[in-house]
Amino acid sequence: MGFHTFPIDRADALEDPSRYRYCSREELVEMLALEADAAVADLGSGTGFYADDVAPFAGTLYAVDVQAEMHEKYREKGLPENVDVVTAGIESLPFDDDHLDAAYSTMTHHEYAGEDAFAELARVIQPGGRLVTVDWSADGPGEDGPSTDERFSLEETTADLEAAGFEILEARNRPETFAVVARR
């Protein structure tokens, strides 16, 4: 992934329920608009905090993370039956073309953002499928999350996704984060 990955020795912090102040389960599930049999990928899944929330609404959920150690932590916690772990970078996903109905990232976009990753997402998400991105905003005050120089703005993110062939359905800035719903 891009600038850095989340430190394994701090993985327990990924289970902190206060994360919901940046993106609630209800908000994420609503933005994804999944069918019951959907194949969906959690991009930068870490310990599965949001994967656990989305899995009941999907047919198959792929917990994608570049760090195998994060998958070990997730397995220790317990995987839902419909979750498959995938150790891969976003720029080289092991899925067939148009395999995914949707994909999402929560606070990980800044770790993988780049032309190769966006092209790969356009390849694996089927036409009409959704990509939901909630991440730290470069326009935020920087009180939480990574430093602002490691972040992207809402404008940069929407422009990058449009350049990769996504249509922006919804884009909004919030105090420290942004949320984008895009359709391939």
Rank of each mutant, 00 (worst) to 15 (best):
P94D: 04
A103T: 01
G89Q: 02
D12M: 08
V180F: 01
T60Y: 11
A179V: 14
A55W: 01
F152Y: 13
E30N: 10
G129W: 00
G128S: 07
E162P: 04
E91R: 07
E111P: 00
E155Q: 13
I125V: 13
E143P: 04
S153P: 03
Y104K: 03
R184E: 05
E167P: 03
P56H: 12
L121Y: 01
D160W: 01
R25M: 11
D65S: 09
A119M: 09
D84F: 04
S137A: 14
T106K: 09
E15D: 14
D98P: 03
E15V: 03
T108P: 08
I125D: 03
A38F: 09
R151T: 00
T177E: 06
A163Y: 05
A164W: 01
E15F: 00
K77R: 15
A41H: 07
A13G: 01
D116A: 12
G89V: 02
G46C: 10
H4S: 15
A68D: 15
Y22C: 04
A171S: 15
D16E: 12
H99S: 12
L79R: 05
E111N: 03
T106F: 12
R25A: 14
L93P: 12
A103H: 00
L131F: 10
D101C: 08
G78I: 06
T158S: 06
D135V: 08
E156A: 05
D139G: 12
E156L: 00
H99Y: 12
P141F: 11
V134S: 06
H4V: 08
D97L: 05
E170K: 14
K73P: 05
A58W: 13
